[in-house]
């Protein structure tokens, strides 16, 4: 990740992701899906110049879906999986983690956490792998998977966050903002926002649909670490347009 030069506004707003691990929360809503941000971050982590590895927990799509999407973006996930740079956990596969043997959701999540930590440890054992990114797509479906226990999901995410301190991993989690709008406290989304170092919010334009602007991104970089040298909390706001195999980012008003 460190070697790839910033290529667009999203990369610039995220800043230098090398070094100490961070948690990035991607928050989208039903009108504008944030999947493209996850794809972008995945591609960035698997960039040929970097030496990073990715642990991907998918609750929403099977591997073949991501494979097709990323192939269009010029990144071959199957090859990366064979190289062991990508460890893909398909949580939709029913037999995973022996969930049919009358286990509680907690047991399943503990076992899943064990798998994640083991994967991180295995990846670290390679000399060339410096940085590991854990991606969760998406948190709300994980909550469904845990029989609606948001506390349990939060425990799991907290454990994943403790990996960022222990091994310097990064954590990327996608969540939907609008599924919590009427739920009372405690609010999982708010808890996640407290956990996150960077929040990427994807919203439709306030003025409604436009032909060549598909929505806007707000990147809030809270940067809470002490050792980050110059701690610059920054907020970036820009718009995007999703094309067939890439996404265009631009500042509001700069599109003719």
């Amino acid at each position: 990740m460190a070697n790839a030069p910033p290529s667009n506004l999203l990369d610039e707003s995220l800043g230098d992701t090398s070094g100490v691990g961070r948690m990035i929360l991607v928050e989208d809503c039903v009108e504008t899906s944030g999947a493209f941000v996850v794809h972008h971050l995945l591609k960035r982590a698997l960039h040929p110049h970097s030496s990073d590895a990715v642990v991907f927990l998918s609750f929403s799509h099977p591997f073949s879906h991501y494979d097709r999407v990323l192939r269009k973006m010029g990144c071959n996930l199957s090859v990366q999986r064979d190289n062991k740079r990508l460890l893909f956990f398909d949580m939709l596969a029913l037999d995973h983690l022996d969930r049919d043997r009358g286990k509680t959701s907690e047991d399943i999540l503990i076992a899943l956490y064990g798998e994640v930590q083991k994967a991180v440890e295995v990846s670290r054992s390679y000399e060339t792998r410096h940085h590991i990114t854990v991606v969760i797509d998406d948190v709300s479906l994980m909550e469904v998977d845990a029989n609606g226990s948001s506390d349990l999901v939060l425990d799991f995410l907290r454990y994943c966050c403790s990996l960022t301190a222990q091994f310097g991993c990064s954590l990327i989690a996608l969540n939907h903002g609008d599924v919590y709008s009427i739920v009372d406290q405690p609010n999982l989304l708010l808890q996640l926002e407290y956990l996150a170092d960077i929040v990427i919010k994807i919203e439709p334009l306030a003025t409604g649909l436009a032909k060549d602007v598909h929505g806007q991104l707000t990147v809030t970089n809270r940067n809470l670490r002490v050792d980050s040298g110059k701690s610059r909390s920054r907020v970036h706001n820009f718009q995007f347009r999703i094309k067939d195999n890439s996404v265009e980012y631009f500042y509001p008003g700069s599109k003719t």
């Binding site: 064990g114 083991k118 425990d155």
Partner: peptide, 24 residues
């Protein structure tokens, strides 16, 4: 109370599924 608040890690460690437990 940050690293292992619910004892998951020690549970996994006892069952031998994870190894490294260094805190740094």
């Amino acid at each position: 109370c940050y690293t292992d608040p619910l004892g998951w890690k020690s549970k996994l460690l006892n069952s031998g599924r994870i190894a490294n437990d260094s805190l740094g």
